[in-house]
Each structure stands twice: as C-alpha cells, then as structure tokens.
C-alpha cells in the first residue's frame, strides 16, 4: 500500500480505512508542518494546526472529490488554518527565537549566516499574506505557479503578479543582501 497514490488512499479513507489514513498522515505531516511553521512562525501552533488539518482529511474524506490533486487540497487546508491563526496573534519569524551559542571555530560565520537568515525571514514575514504564501509555496514547497494557484484558489496570472510584487518588495527590503555577492556571507 506504500506505493498507492494519494488519491487512491483518499478513496480508501472515504470508506473508513484507518490504515490508509495513517499512511497518508505519515506522508504529509512533515510537509504540513513546514508550511504551517513558515506561515504562523510558531512551532506549537504549527503542530496543532497540522493535527487539525489531518483530522479534517479523515472526517471529510467521504465528501472529497478529486477535482484537484490531494497535495494542493491539503496545502490549502493547512494554509487557510495557518492564516487564520496568524491573523489572531502577533507573528514572529521562527529565526527570531535564536539558537544557542555555537562554540565551534567557525561560530562567527554561523552567526553571520543566522543574522542573514533572520533578515530574510523578517522580510518575508512582513509581506502581505498572499504574497507571503506565494513565496513560501514556491520556494519552500517547490510548487509550480499552477499548483500555487490551486492552493490559493486563484488564477495562475494572479500568482505571477503576486510573485512579481513579492520579489520586488524583498529586493527593496533586503537591499545589499539581494545584490550580487550579497549571499556570500
């Protein structure tokens, strides 16, 4: 059953097959967490949201119709839940929590890289919700523009416009970091 497609598993889940659900949950828990963490900026919230999203998969499976790939549908559920949670509370990029000091010889370079990551995370986090989502889904999840459009329930042209605006804003905010040789830190 491990090779079964997501859609096949959903068919079995619709008939109440718990083992198919647990297999699908194993496939998607980490992916959902990565997306939810990036949108909410909070690990605990992300775990709670992904658990809820997976439960929704189980509960609503009999009504699910394969109009789109399961993956985009699942991302849409996680994204919508994460967005609601993000709008309820202040957002802190994950990197804001900081890491413990690193005693290794190249700790200076690591620190510099963390600061770079923190700046990028903050710049991305400040983007409007849909631009933020378009960047995360494209560069973290590796979705195509058409898949991002399916997740955000919009058109491909709108996704392209979101990406153009988001990248323009990021370049402005990151300044020298976005210029040539800026990533050589």
């Amino acid at each position: 059953m491990d090779e079964a497609s997501d859609e096949d598993l959903m068919g079995r889940i619709a008939k109440g097959d718990e083992s198919a659900f647990r297999l699908l949950a194993r496939r998607y828990a980490a992916r959902g967490l990565a997306l939810a963490r990036r949108i909410t900026g909070n690990d605990a919230d992300a775990e709670e949201l992904v658990q809820e999203a997976l439960l929704r998969v189980w509960i609503n499976a009999p009504r699910w119709r394969p109009l789109a790939a399961f993956r985009t549908w699942f991302y849409r559920v996680v994204f919508n839940l994460s967005l609601s949670r993000r709008r309820r509370g202040p957002f802190l990029p994950l990197e804001a929590a900081g890491d413990p000091p690193d005693p290794s010889p190249d700790a200076g370079a690591a620190l510099e890289r963390r600061e770079t990551d923190h700046r990028i995370a903050a710049a991305i986090a400040e983007l409007p919700d849909r631009q933020h989502a378009a960047i995360v889904l494209t560069y973290q999840e590796g979705l195509s523009n058409a898949e991002v459009a399916a997740v955000l329930e919009t058109t491909v042209a709108s996704v392209e416009a979101l990406l153009v605006r988001a990248k323009r804003t990021l370049r402005d905010r990151l300044g020298a970091l976005a210029e040539p040789h800026g990533d050589d830190v």
């Binding site: 619709a14 109440g16 718990e18 659900f21 647990r22 949950a25 194993r26 828990a29 967490l33 775990e47 992904v50 658990q51 997976l54 439960l55 189980w58 509960i59 609503n60 499976a61 009999p62 009504r63």
Partner: peptide, 15 residues
C-alpha cells in the same frame, strides 16, 4: 502529530 492521531478517530462526515 502522528502520535496524537494514533488514538480512536472521530466519526466521518458524509452521505
């Protein structure tokens, strides 16, 4: 997350 889902699952909603 997976351990939290390991228990009994709620009733499904459907036709």
């Amino acid at each position: 997350v997976l351990r939290a889902l390991a228990g009994p699952l709620p009733r499904q909603r459907g036709w």
